[in-house]
Amino acid sequence: MVRVDLPLEQLRTYRNPRPAPPGLAEYWDRTLAQSRAAAGPVRADRVDVGLRTVTCYDVTFPGFAGEDVRAWWLVPVLPDGVAAAGTPGTRPVVVEFLGYGGGRGLPHERLIWAGHGFAQLVVDSRGQGSIWNTGDTPDPHGSVAGSLGLLTKGVDHPDHLYYRRLLTDAVLAVDAAARLPGADPSRIAAVGHSQGGALALAAAALNPAVAAVGARAPFLCGIARALEVTDAEPYGDLARYLSVHRTRTEDVLAVLDHVDVSFLAPRLRCPTWISVGLADPICPPSGIFGAINAIEAVAPEVRTWPYGGHEAGGAHDDAHLAAWLAEHLGPAAADHHLPPDQHPNQGQP
């Protein structure tokens, strides 16, 4: 095995040695209550992007502080005579969160979950979308001087953190998904890779409407531990910041603890799937296992890849997760027929 961290037998019992920040539950309850109080409507405008088997909507929903967040809503077109399982005309939902530096891009770039029959909400990441894909959601908040990346934005105070805003957007994306055309609000999953995996886990921990969560190589797990194990970006950017602000290390880490997924993991109550590359140089396995081992209410499904890097199991994970989601959310479509006047797609805009 290409070892970049602790051996697997130690990872299985590793816990984040830092204590959770005081008042963490109140911090998130207050943040979410304030943002929900400021929320406006969810808007979904059907757009023709040339897809033949998926109906696409351009979505705007209220995120942190009621600010607009963009998304794509991708709903598979049912064959004539086939009804969606569950409530007629509805499908189980996958809310997909994206990796560091990417935005929602174009609809045809992210069809994996719609291809498996789920209604799919592809959530833009505020202030991102210029590293590997394009984005459409600004982050209208300044901060004290940070480094080049996102981990150091707002590290002067927990209320100023960039990731407070992004995690709030993720939680409220689940609220929005429940209100979209064709969604079954009782069958919503959150999924993502890397930063997207952190957002999925946070959304599931902080929003009881999430019925299942899948995270591949999640970011923001054991932030302080990651600084000890890797100098790869994005953690390398935080290390660079602390090398300049030499006397602020503990203060900065105490602020970032408020968005560390290992401290939110005890709130997870839904079926949980996590994949870890044991040779991941970007999101160290020990930090991820610190989150896994903090989950108390459910026994998570954990997949480990001895030679997997930051991709963990890659496409193999995607295939396994699709089957796992179908098991926990129920099938996307049922093989029964409806009369033409009861076809679930009839009369939809």
Rank of each mutant, 00 (worst) to 15 (best):
V4H: 07
E9V: 14
R12Y: 01
Y14S: 03
R15A: 08
P17W: 09
E26K: 07
R36C: 13
R36I: 11
R43F: 09
A44K: 00
D48A: 12
V49W: 12
V49E: 01
G50N: 05
V59E: 00
T60N: 03
F64M: 07
W72P: 05
V75N: 02
G81L: 13
G86E: 07
T87E: 15
P88I: 05
T90R: 06
P92A: 14
V93Q: 02
V94F: 00
V94G: 01
V94L: 03
L98F: 04
G99C: 01
G102V: 04
G103I: 02
G105F: 10
P107F: 14
G115Q: 08
G117L: 03
F118W: 12
G127V: 08
Q128P: 11
Q128R: 03
N133W: 05
H141T: 10
K153R: 15
K153C: 03
H160S: 11
H160T: 14
H160F: 08
H160L: 09
Y162Q: 04
D169C: 01
V171D: 01
A173S: 14
V174L: 15
V174S: 02
A178R: 15
L180V: 14
G182Y: 04
D184R: 12
I188C: 09
S194M: 05
G196S: 08
G196E: 02
L201V: 05
A203D: 05
A203N: 05
L206M: 11
L206V: 10
A209Q: 15
A211M: 04
A211P: 00
A211S: 14
V213K: 10
G214Q: 01
A217H: 00
P218K: 04
F219W: 09
F219M: 09
L227Q: 09
D231N: 13
A232P: 12
L238S: 05
S243R: 12
S243N: 15
T247F: 11
T249Y: 06
D251A: 13
D251G: 09
V252D: 01
L253E: 04
L253K: 00
A254S: 12
A254H: 04
D260G: 07
D260E: 07
R269S: 14
T272D: 03
T272W: 04
S275A: 15
L278N: 00
A279G: 09
D280N: 10
I282K: 01
G287V: 07
G287T: 00
I292M: 02
A297M: 05
A297Q: 15
A299P: 01
E301A: 15
E301D: 14
E301Q: 08
E301N: 10
W305H: 10
W305R: 08
W305Y: 15
P306S: 07
G313D: 05
G313C: 08
L321Y: 04
A322E: 06
G330A: 08
A333L: 12
H336G: 02
P339L: 13
P340E: 05
P349M: 12
